[in-house]
Write a protein that binds this DNA or RNA. Sequence first.
DNA 1: TAGTGGTCTAGACCACCAT
DNA 2: TGGTGGTCTAGACCACTAG
Lengths: 253, 253
Amino acid sequence: MAEEGKIRREAATAAPGALGYRPLYRQAKEILLKRLAEGVWQPGQALPSEPELASDLGVSPGTVRKALDEMTAENLLVRRQGRGTFVARHDEARILFQFFKLVSDAGERRFPESRLLRLEAAKADAAAAGRLRIPQGAPVAAIERVRLLEDCPRVHEWIVVPGSLFPGLASRADLPNNLYELYASAYGVTIARATERLKAVAAGPRQAELLETERGHPLLAIDRLAFAVDGTPAEWRLSLCRTDAFHYASELR
Amino acid sequence: MAEEGKIRREAATAAPGALGYRPLYRQAKEILLKRLAEGVWQPGQALPSEPELASDLGVSPGTVRKALDEMTAENLLVRRQGRGTFVARHDEARILFQFFKLVSDAGERRFPESRLLRLEAAKADAAAAGRLRIPQGAPVAAIERVRLLEDCPRVHEWIVVPGSLFPGLASRADLPNNLYELYASAYGVTIARATERLKAVAAGPRQAELLETERGHPLLAIDRLAFAVDGTPAEWRLSLCRTDAFHYASELR
DNA sequence: TAGTGGTCTAGACCACCAT
DNA sequence: TGGTGGTCTAGACCACTAG
């Protein structure tokens, strides 16, 4: 193993303006991220205290704090004053806050129910392979489901995940509503962030049937690519949504 | 005037758990925000150095730094190492980064051209009054325009702003493409953040004509409410977009 | 009461920029 | 060369939680 323990200071030795210089707190963060990706600390568990981490990594508490601050801002950690710093869990509250942007026009956010239509092992087609950055034909698990908002079918959803990250997922007997929680607890894959591309499209015959509307009805298409803590693309998801009484909420800061 | 100069420490005197306790750095930030809203420092100008601000506010440099850090994270300030801290300008780069989320499917971000259709003084209808939190019938300026992406008409846009914030805007001879820059330079109103609600809708006859498509074509409706530095709703904007070769990019972090 | 994170301070040194 | 922001350290004290 190369750099597993304490941080080797690069600052003092590197030439001024040298490439590859990184602040200590980023090096500290990198080590913590690595441990997070390796599952050294499980979701919901407390990390060691700040002074402990500091002496462990060989830096001052203030430096560790800055690393933890960034990871907290990225929703990877949760700090609770007087209790400790915890690995963020993919509970419904977090998913509603970070990933699920559909809100009723009245302003209510609720976690959607799911009705599973299909779950099978397959091979990545060109589109999925390109998005997930895996070879075409590589094994994947494919999920098709309808999601209910306030008891009405409003979202038709396809999900493709790499078989290498989620072995056996396609043959599970049951699939929970909250997939990100499953990814983390059963496969050790923590979704850290995602990018979404939105378009307006017309409903095809399948959406018309499943979402109880007519062909050509305008739907919001959400094409999401979700990334694990280490940056690996871990899930591709395409959601077609009726937005008659709901909208996608976006904050521009 | 109550608290204009130095910060009155609340921490030591307030009872433990007392309501209304705020950290020093937030009080410092509040004062800086107020000065920003009052136009004490103009967009593009440099703020005083950190030690200067610290002695000015009567706190330590580290405390000022934390306030500046937050304001930088909110895109209100820009720090340039070795040069100083500057008030963020609404140049095209910032708007593309912070507010304009339409991207070509190839991944290119470009600032859209505008073709003005209408500019007039009007009275706020119920919808505009509700969104802008002004009385119904209050004077507003209304703008209607078409925006071009890669030389093709792709967005049909209505904009309503309160007449009280932008006196005389409706009778301007010319209207620049970049409105936020105009708001800041001509009226001292800096847009700090916005919320958007997205829906898929069908094109009406007017959109069909303006956007060179047929009625019923699916369009992405973006309903944006933009807020000034002090939190006042300053602009309501409804954009209907063809997303055939473009998409709305959203980052979930 | 002990332990945690949160705030605040003070100062040293580094990296970057303008001159 | 001088001034700026960026990083790093060390320590004091406050606020919150648990036992």
